[in-house]
C-alpha cells in the first residue's frame, strides 16, 4: 500500500485522467461523425485485439482513477479508522467488481468470436 500512496498515486491519477479524457473525446467525436454504432459494430470492436486492449485499459484507468479519488475524499472527510476501513473496502469491492465484470464479458466475447 505504501508504494501506492504519495507521488505514485498522484501520478497514476493524472495519467489515468489523461487516458479517460482522450477516450471520451475520441468516443464523442466518433458518435458525432458516425452516429450510434449499434451492437454488431461494438462486437466487432471488442473482438479486435486493439479494441479489447483499449476497453481493458480504459476500464483499468477508470478503476484506478476512481480509487485514488475516493481514497482522497475518505482521507479528507472520514477520520475514524473503522469508518475509513469500511468505506475504502466498499469502494475497492465495487471497483474490483466493475473491472472483473468487464474482464468476464470481454473474455466471453473473445471466446465466442467466429
Amino acid at each position: 500500500m505504501r508504494q501506492f500512496t504519495g507521488q505514485r498515486a498522484w501520478l497514476v491519477q493524472r495519467l489515468s485522467a489523461l487516458l479517460l479524457l482522450c477516450a471520451t473525446a475520441a468516443l464523442g467525436i466518433y458518435l458525432l461523425i458516425e452516429g450510434p454504432p449499434g451492437y454488431p459494430a461494438w462486437l466487432a470492436f471488442a473482438r479486435h485485439p486493439a479494441g479489447s486492449t483499449l476497453i481493458l485499459a480504459v476500464t483499468a484507468a477508470l478503476c484506478l482513477h476512481g480509487w485514488v479519488g475516493a481514497r482522497d475524499v475518505v482521507l479528507d472527510y472520514l477520520h475514524r479508522p473503522a469508518w475509513r476501513l469500511c468505506v475504502l473496502a466498499l469502494v475497492a469491492t465495487a471497483l474490483g467488481l466493475v473491472f472483473l465484470r468487464v474482464l468476464v464479458v470481454l473474455a466471453a466475447t473473445l471466446a465466442h468470436a467466429p
Binding site: T5, G6, D72
Partner: peptide
C-alpha cells in the same frame, strides 16, 4: 520525506 499521502499530497 515529502513523498507522503498526507504531508504533500493532501493539497487539492
Amino acid at each position: 520525506d515529502l513523498d507522503d499521502v498526507y504531508k504533500l499530497y493532501r493539497c487539492r
